[in-house]
Simulated scan of single mutants.
Amino acid sequence: MRTASRFAIVIVALLVVLGGIFGYTFYRFGQMQKQFSQPQPPAAIEATTARSTTWVQSIKAVGSVTAVNGIEVANEVAGVIKALRFESGDRVEKGDVLLTMDSATDEAALRTTRAEAKLAEQQFKRTANLLPKKAISQAEYDEAQANMEAANARVNEAQATLEKKVIKAPFAGSLGLRLVDQGQYLAVGTPIVEINMLDPIYVDYTISEKELANVDVGYDVEATVAALPGKTFKGKVSAINSSISPETRTVRVRATLRNPDRELRPGMFATVQTVRPAERDVVTLPRTAISFNTYGDFVYVLKKNDDGQLVTERRSVETGDTRNGRVEVTKNLKAGERVVATALLRLRAGQPVEVTSDDDTPAKDETSGEEASN
């Protein structure tokens, strides 16, 4: 009897505890529902306006900077370096001596060939004097003449070999790193130093075959490189390849750029705009006002709902060129429409918003309440 009463007391206690837990949980759930059902305050956003402007037509591509003249200087004959006349990074003019090699043996060989040529010339003159007197045959005369010409050829050969012991700059340009040292033996074809002509300079890039009709020699070109942000190099299209690559269906284009400060270097990756001599009207937005993703680009257009409250409308758009931080919108947006300017990821379609600043009106300084200067 006592056991049954104790069991009943335990059951009642458990029911009271569980009832309390379930009651508190139900109360909290109701409070949360009540909280969520309350209208959310409008999100603070920055707005911008789609603007109509005139852009010069251009074709954007990527390419690589190439020297007009750029080689790795090497020797044609073997020898030991006698004197170095340059340092890494020097600027040189055409014909400047870069190094000389020991030439004692070649100078001796040249003196020998000159002596042989002098003797052959004297023998030819004697033969020439005897031929009219019928003292020698025509064959002997021809042989003497051939010996003289061969001796002179050997002199020229020795002279050319001697001159190749002096390495000169083939054109004006900037030198790279010195790859040889004083007293080093140079086998034929040993790299000595790189030399590049840097002003002007080429940029080679490719365009699609469908754009070929829109590019011609003489068109203006603007190029930028990652190493020099914010700087634009200008030039003109100087050549277009005569064939199209069958693998990529693209054609190579070469432009010549001005590079007076020699800031562009061969091998730099470049973004190139080929400008056509024509203009077109476009609708543009700041880059931050557009969400770019694999499912399609979109913007949040600002609209008023039936209650007159400003809300967001998600709208898919198509984009075109990008220039100076603004993107061309080619479809689904009209000039004058207002859109959300930044922080698109924290918004959703139909969300109430409140504009805190607009690019058409001066922004307010949060601390002083005065208009911030642009």
Rank of each mutant, 00 (worst) to 15 (best):
N259W: 06
K125Q: 15
V180W: 05
L228P: 02
S5G: 05
P286C: 02
Q40S: 14
V282M: 01
V193S: 04
P277Q: 10
Q351N: 00
E354C: 01
S174Q: 15
R114A: 14
G189F: 03
V166C: 08
E163D: 14
L84T: 10
Q273T: 13
N259E: 08
N75D: 02
V56I: 10
K236W: 02
G296I: 03
A120K: 00
E354Q: 14
E72Y: 13
Q138M: 09
R323C: 09
W55P: 04
L333K: 00
R262P: 00
T250C: 10
V68I: 10
V12S: 14
L119Y: 11
A153W: 05
W55V: 09
N374V: 06
A146D: 10
L130K: 13
T294Q: 11
F292M: 09
A67C: 04
F22S: 13
A187R: 12
N196I: 03
T274C: 00
A227M: 04
R252Y: 02
E211D: 15
L212G: 06
V62W: 13
Q122F: 11
G320C: 02
T294P: 05
A343M: 08
A104Y: 12
P266D: 02
L98K: 06
E149F: 12
F7S: 15
A117H: 01
R252Q: 14
A108N: 08
E263Q: 14
R265K: 15
T356A: 09
N129R: 10
L110R: 07
R287N: 05
L347N: 00
I192D: 02
T294N: 15
A144C: 01
R287Y: 07
D199Y: 06
G89F: 04
G20K: 05
L302D: 00
D96M: 13
Q40Y: 11
E163A: 15
